[in-house]
Structures are given as C-alpha cells and as structure tokens.
Design a protein around this nucleic acid. Structure first.
Ligand code: MN
Ligand code: MN
Ligand code: ZN
Ligand code: ZN
Lengths: 150, 150
DNA sequence: TGTATTTTTTAAAATCATTATCTTTTGGTA
DNA sequence: TACCAAAAGATAATGATTTTAAAAAATACA
C-alpha cells in the first residue's frame, strides 16, 4: 500500500506534479477500493470521510490528472457516469471486464487475453496497438446457478 | 438501403412498435452515415435537414428504442457524448473499433476476432458471454506513415 | 528570513447532454 | 363521429462535469 503510494508519488514527480494532501487522500481511497469501480462522486464521498475539507472539483481534477498519467483508467459502463479504475501494478494494458446483464456485477480479468488478436490487428490492419478496452456482457456464474434452480 | 429499412421495420413490428415517419427519418440518417459515429445531436441536425419539424427529444427517444432492440449500439469514446452505431446486417456481436490516439480517426473491424477469447472466458471464468465491446487505442496507418517521413 | 511567483484548492456559477413532464397530434376502432 | 392509446412536440428540469475567480499553500530566490 505504502509502496504503491510511493510509486505513484514518483510518477507524479517525474512529470513535475506534486502529491498534495488532497491528491494523496484521493489515491488512498482508490487503493483501498481497488476492487470497486468508483465514480467521481463515490470517491468524493469516501475522501470526505477522512478529509472533510476537500472539494468535489479537486477530486475531479485529481482523477483527470491520474488518468492522463495512466495511473487510473477512466471507464464507462453505460450508466451516465465515468468510473475510475486503478491500473494493476506494472500492467501495460488495461485489464478486462465481465459485466453481468442480470445483476450488474463486474468481474475483472487481469490476464491479458488479447495477445494474438493484437498481432492480427497489427499485421492485417496495419494499426499499431498501444492499449485496449475489452468488456464482455453476459451472465455471471451466480446468476447462471440461479437460472438452473428455477 | 430499402431492404435494410424493411428489415428494421419488421424488427420494430415484432415488438409491436411502429415505424413512424420520424423514426423512419432517423433510421435513414443512420443508414446514410453508417461509417460515422454520430451523436444524438449530430443525428438530430441531419434529420432536421429533411424533416425540420422533428424534435430533439424524439430523436433521443428513437435512438433509445433502437438501442433496446439492438438495432444500434450506444457507445462512448470518452468525450462527453454517447454515439450511436448501427449493427452490421445480421451481426450477433458488436463490431470492433480502432481509435487513433494521434488523429482521432475511428476504423471498424467487422470480422469477429474474439471467438477463441470468448471460449476461454466461458470455460475458465464460467461467464456466459452474450456480447462484447472491444476497442484498440493506437496509431493508424496514416499517422504511422507521417511519423516515418519525419 | 522576507517577498515575489507559481501551483493548487475552494466555492460557486456555468455548461451541456440527457431525461422528464405536460400538452397536442395521430391513427386506429367501436 | 367519439374515444383511446401511442407517439411526438415543446420546454423545463436534472445531474455530471467544467470553468471561473479568489484565497491559500508551496516554491524560488534575493
Ligand atoms: Mn476494473
Ligand atoms: Mn462502429
Ligand atoms: Zn449476475
Ligand atoms: Zn491517425
């Protein structure tokens, strides 16, 4: 945890940004809720619990900054809000998501399943892949079991 | 063109929706701009050219309806607006996109490259895949050529 | 150490896409 | 024709995000 924070601090410094207390509080919330997919508002409310002075605009600015530095990925699951997802330690590519259309749960796949597909895209479409976004929509294990019962 | 329109008309009727003149005008615009990725506002302005009486709310309502019927897919490339993309004739899955981070162009891949990956997801994660979203971010052919020159 | 300069934050207002509401129109049916 | 439901039109409301202006904090440097 402290290690990840240090790493992020260095990433900020390398672009001559500072890790202000507000930014640190925001990053800590993201680290503490890594499994979730928080909206800006969610982050704001959680940060506020420990640092009530912080403003929503600051949270937005911080998330935007972290996004530019590729520390978080800004995603959109189709409801009206952007969600912010920490990159996994050392990951070059964004991880994949499994969104259940029954219960709305979101599962993560950290393993990169797109190696072969990217090769095809690079050779057949002459497109130099830098990153990707992959989401599957379907039915999660739990919801399948529920269906089987009924 | 007329053929696609007929098909869509049938899809609407099968759910007991009507193809009203406003809906037809909207669908025609989508068909005429299939290669683009239009926002609701874009669609509205184009529909207005031929049917000036139409209201923005109607366009939104129509796009929402087409979305529910899986005739169009609602996508989000990270700018603040939703974009609407016609499904390819007879396609079960949403097609893929190549977004250039240099020039912003968007290329489409109609071929489904995810067959193997979906099999892995179904067996190893026990997730029943119904649809997917795949976007690659990188450098398009044209922008690569520009780089080579300089 | 003191002061000018720059960065960051705050609070509030503005923006802008989308949705909701309310009224009117349309098209079918008894 | 009179009635009803679905759809459209007009416009207000909502809600996420951005912008602005002023204050505070950090930094540079004489
Ligand atoms: Mn995730
Ligand atoms: Mn497309
Ligand atoms: Zn589920
Ligand atoms: Zn390009």
């Amino acid at each position: 945890m402290e290690h990840r924070l240090e790493r992020i601090k260095k990433q900020l410094h390398s672009q001559s940004y500072k890790l202000t207390p507000q930014r640190e509080a925001t990053v800590r919330v993201l680290l503490e809720h890594e499994e979730d997919h928080l909206s800006a508002e969610d982050v704001y409310l959680l940060v506020k619990e420990k640092s009530p002075e912080i403003g929503l605009a600051t949270v937005y600015r911080t998330l935007e900054l972290l996004s530019e530095l590729k520390i978080v990925d800004k995603i959109n699951f189709g409801d009206g809000v952007s969600r912010y997802d920490l990159r996994k330690e050392g990951a070059e590519h964004f991880h994949h998501h499994l969104v259940c259309i029954e219960c709305g749960s979101v599962e993560e796949i950290e393993e990169d399943l797109l190696g072969d597909v990217e090769k095809i895209v690079e050779t057949e479409w002459q497109f130099k892949v830098k990153d990707h976004r992959l989401t599957f929509h379907g039915i999660c294990r739990k919801c399948q079991e529920k269906e089987d019962e009924s």
